[in-house]
Amino acid sequence: MSLHLILFLLFGAICVAGAVNLLVQRHPINSALSLIAVMAALAGEYLLLGAEFVAAIQVIVYAGAIMVLFVFVIMLLNAGEEEETKGSRVAILFGVPGVLTGAVLTGWVVLRHSGTEPVPIGALPGPPTEIAHLLFHDFLLPFEVTSVLVLIAIMGAVVLATKPEATERKAR
């Protein structure tokens, strides 16, 4: 077993364990922390593929910035433990078939592509210069459209977060 495979399995195990722990934990802050572990382990997997830039961005943006905001909101609301419900009928009616369909689809895709070669280290565009060339040259239009999408989301959040009193005061 090569070191590469051992590390892949290690990060994969952390990922899956974190994801399961996220669902099992009762307290929101523990769930958020498990999600951070999942993000960090994913960054490790990206590093194994040779995509060091994506790995660094994964840590900075997801594990660093976005999850800090999650933790911040949980702290601010001082959210307590969640209550246990008896399970809703909707969840059973739609959830169980949904999980089954998802499992079948995943299995089908994996089986169908089982003959493909594994990706060797460094086969993916890793260095920042290549990523930059892809983003700002080959896929410039989709990239810019995405940024407009994010801008719209930010504006929506600002509109929703503005208190009505504040706008009234300004109108006067």
Binding site: I29, A56, V59, G64, V68, F72
Partner: peptide, 25 residues
């Protein structure tokens, strides 16, 4: 000597917030 050294430092420092935030909470 990693070729994303600076990004690595930024990533690590951005994770350092958790120590302070979780201590407070």
């Amino acid at each position: 000597d990693v070729n994303i050294g600076l990004l690595l430092i930024l990533g690590i420092t951005s994770m350092g917030v958790y120590g302070v935030a979780l201590a407070g909470w």
